[in-house]
Design a protein around this nucleic acid. Sequence first.
DNA 1: TTGAAACTAAACATCC
DNA 2: TGGATGTTTAGTTTCA
Length: 683
Amino acid sequence: MMVESASETIRSAPSGQNGVGSISGQADGAGGGGAGAAGTGGGGAGRDVATGTDSNGEMSPAELLHFQQQQALQVARQFLLQQASSLSSPGSNDSKQSASAVQVPVSVAMMSPQMLTPQQMQQILSPPQLQALLQQQQALMLQQLQEYYKKQQEQLHLQLLTQQQAGKQQPKEALGNKQLAFQQQLLQMQQLQQQHLLNLQRQGLVSLQPSQASGPLQTLPQAAVCPTDLPQLWKGEGAPGQPAEDSVKQEGLDLTGSATTATSFAAPPKVSPPLSHHALPNGQPTVLTPRRDSSSHEETPASHPLYGHGECKWPGCETLCEDLGQFIKHLNTEHALDDRSTAQCRVQMQVVQQLEIQLAKESERLQAMMAHLHMRPSEPKPFSQPLNPVPGSSSFSKVTVSAADSFPDGLVHPPTSAAAPVTPLRPPGLSSASLHSGGPTRRRSSDKFCSPISSELAQNHEFYKNADVRPPFTYASLIRQAILETPDRQLTLNEIYNWFTRMFAYFRRNTATWKNAVRHNLSLHKCFVRVENVKGAVWTVDEREYQKRRPPKMTGSPTLVKNMISGLSYGALNASYQAALAESSFPLLNSPGMLNPGSASSLLPLSHDDVGASVEPLPSNGSSSPPRLSPPQYSHQVQVKEEPAEAEEDRRPGPPLGPSNPSTAGPPEDRDLEEELPGEELS
DNA sequence: TTGAAACTAAACATCC
DNA sequence: TGGATGTTTAGTTTCA
């Protein structure tokens, strides 16, 4: 009875998540049928797994997914019920746990509050632990879903093979159609999997708070179980223990080294569901005894992996032990086999497994990215390797690193997260500043010829909005961008402030500094014109003056041109990469147009700034200078260009819009900018 | 090494 | 009077 009611509760959770976000688009097609199948699947779940398998042939991927979710959730529910009852009767927990240690992690059941009462949970964990555990297990749910997807894929493959066998007696056409249908199903399943996972991550499972984006690991998605958060999971633990014969098995579960541990032993991408290895009475999987012997670093001088720096490294313990013997004694007394230790081990197991999965996923992603970017896969960089600031670059401030490390599947995917693999692409003339490094880096290069501000902003809007990363643009270009984004091309100082804070998480702090800089720039640069308006003083942009700021040095310099072109390509690549990551790696944003340097035109600026920033303002010969050029064209254009600033001014008595020559075949947006930039405003 | 540009910080003035 | 706004200067950093 209770099982059934809980089943309904659980059933609604994943489907609700399915319906949110991008996945709904694809799931909609099967949505109606999926809903119907959910009911059927729910009933079928009680029968047997084989039932679901049999009906797979008729079920759509979405239905299949839902059906399997129901099955798993039901198993999870039963598991938790048994576990809960065993917790209330500690005397017999071992046998029950071992018997009920089925494939479903607690995380799945956590979706249904009815399944395990808070009191029952609190018997094991303290409130902070519960909270942390909840977060972690939400992340684990993600993993669980991934497993379901994999199962379904396997089943589809299986069916495909079966159909192929059976199809030998069938007409060729029928077989081809069936195969095609299966392949489409498979493809759809894969897409569903990706989008569903991304959705889950984007929703509550992965939350990025701008104010917290200052640390690399803080932005680490919860799916990755940030190691720095884990101690919280263990704090407050101090229950007495009883001697346990297998306490030794608990070694290797060093929480503090979970990350390194996870990366030290290469975990196969395909791992069993989290609790599938709960074969031992204490919940310790036999396959998961990640000793740190091989990965023993400087922190493990003693022979015991749980002992280091004279203290117990049991998660949350940190008890000082003078020597190994004392530690062993402490281990046997304080961390013996009991419910608490068992629970801790489970959590640690999940942590490790989650990290393994995360590592595998990121590894695959990196390989795919490198393959896509035609990079040499022969120089793999370890994931555990900290971000290496580009040699010679002092620009990697803490801010940069903070956002830079925010890792997989999180909302924040700063460009520097790919700094290692992408570094080879960085053109020699392009400074590291253009790598969106944070800190007070001078950004002339990226600002002026490498990184079109509007396009980059457009592509990385979410990134800059959420990540505490300093935008790689000068104050002047940012101010100009803010002003040009408005319909009437004018902003009050306060509105400029608001634009900064709205667009960039970085400018939500240190307000005194950057606001002063904004005012300073407004006053300093002639390109910013203060106009008395009805509503007070507003600031406008004098494009002529702005373009005059441009350094004329680039003219005809092959090196500069080359660098600039490379920088443009890189900038485009980098920007698109950021955007794609910031958008949770949606394939759409990885469209060829984004990454293919050959189609860099699509990345090129949508506004003056792009023209002005990435391409020198105007050709002195007055020839048309298309604001969007593919790199070769771009190169040619730049080489032709001469005396950009002065000549431009001499030749253009008209509206002060140097780069946006009306004769150019620029996009409407550019034209609008040109035309709408009122000359009277600038005077 | 040098000059230019950008950034930061600060002082000061004006206005509401 | 205090805060916002605007101007100016000085020192520093980065890069070509």
